[in-house]
Simulated scan of single mutants.
Amino acid sequence: MSIKTEEVLTKVPEVTLGFWIIKILATTLGETGGDTLSMSMHLGYLLSTVVFAGIFLAAVIVQIRAKQFHPVVYWTTIIATTTVGTTLADFADRSLGIGYTGGVALLFSLLIGSLAVWYRTLGSVSINTVGSPKSELFYWVTIMFSQTLGTALGDWTADTAGLGYEGGAIVFGVLLALVAAAYYRTKISHTVLFWAAFILTRPLGAVVGDFLDKPIQAGGLDLSRFAASAVLLAAIALSVALFRQRPARLSH
């Protein structure tokens, strides 16, 4: 890749159908993977959060220090955000006792705050402006908050709202379809729609992940968390290999 080409490319992928397929698989893996450590391996929410936070920080450092877009590094970092998001949300909701509603409110505030500070500092929250270490740092902090919010929102929908895992999946699937329709049929900012879709894919993955591994009496399929996580990880690796991974073009 020439220097001239490098200067007009970001280190995040172009948003395509393949991007969203991999994102949903990654968020589902985040749920089953997070539950594997905290529940199946009995490490608890706090210790699991510490472990995943360490992986997340290491992945972010590698991603930011990279000179160009690397699909494996990028998607590894995404998976790290969604696993730490799962255990962190569960810790806040359950161990701290603030409940799903309190967790959703707190995390939504943090997400909006992150986007607001990012916009105020750099003038845009578009992924097409993620071309510097500072913008990347804002990008990954915002994603981590969105992944954590998605876990809490998925749990709130399935449990507090009483929709169950299947009902929650339908709700978030319909909302994503509406966002997609707005993208093609309205003049709503594509940046706003991107972040709306990015946020909504996380609770969709959360309820699908819970549906796969929760007990049958709780409305799940009671599948092995280890097996489900392994299958999802293999599906992500295959998708990254099959779907063309191109960096988004940088705009100023």
Score class of each variant (00 low, 15 high):
A196E: 00
D155W: 04
A181L: 13
Q147W: 00
A180V: 10
G154H: 05
E166V: 15
T151H: 01
V171Q: 05
P203H: 06
L153E: 04
L175W: 11
V192L: 14
H190K: 15
F198Y: 15
S146D: 03
S189A: 11
K187W: 06
P203C: 06
A197K: 12
G162M: 13
A206K: 06
H190I: 02
T186S: 15
T148A: 11
A158T: 11
A152D: 01
A152S: 13
G167Y: 11
A196Q: 07
S189V: 10
I170F: 12
D213A: 02
S189M: 09
L178F: 11
A182Q: 08
A161H: 05
L212M: 14
D155E: 05
A206D: 01
A180K: 12
Y184A: 14
L163D: 12
T186M: 10
A180G: 02
G164P: 13
L149G: 11
A152E: 04
W195I: 04
V208A: 14
V208D: 01
W156A: 06
F172I: 11
A197L: 06
T186H: 07
L176W: 06
I199T: 11
G167E: 09
T191W: 04
F211W: 14
L178C: 10
F145A: 12
A158M: 07
L153K: 02
F211T: 00
G150Q: 03
D159N: 15
A161Y: 08
A196H: 10
G162I: 12
A180W: 03
V174R: 13
W195F: 07
G150P: 01
A152G: 01
L200G: 07
V171G: 06
V171E: 08
D210C: 00
G173N: 08
W156S: 03
H190N: 15
A196L: 13
A152T: 03
D213I: 15
L193V: 07
F198C: 08
R202C: 04
I188K: 02
L193C: 04
Y183G: 07
A158V: 09
L204I: 00
F172P: 07
A158L: 04
R202H: 00
A152Q: 02
V179M: 14
V171F: 08
V174I: 15
A197D: 03
L204Q: 02
D159A: 08
D213M: 01
V207H: 05
V207I: 07
T160R: 11
H190S: 12
V171A: 15
K214G: 04
A177Q: 08
T157M: 12
L200Y: 03
Y184V: 08
L204A: 07
G209W: 01
F194S: 13
V207D: 02
G162S: 08
L204F: 10
A181E: 13
A152N: 05
H190L: 06
H190Q: 14
S146A: 15
F211I: 00
F172W: 13
L176D: 00
Y183P: 01
K214T: 09
L193T: 03
A169L: 10
A181Y: 14
K187P: 03
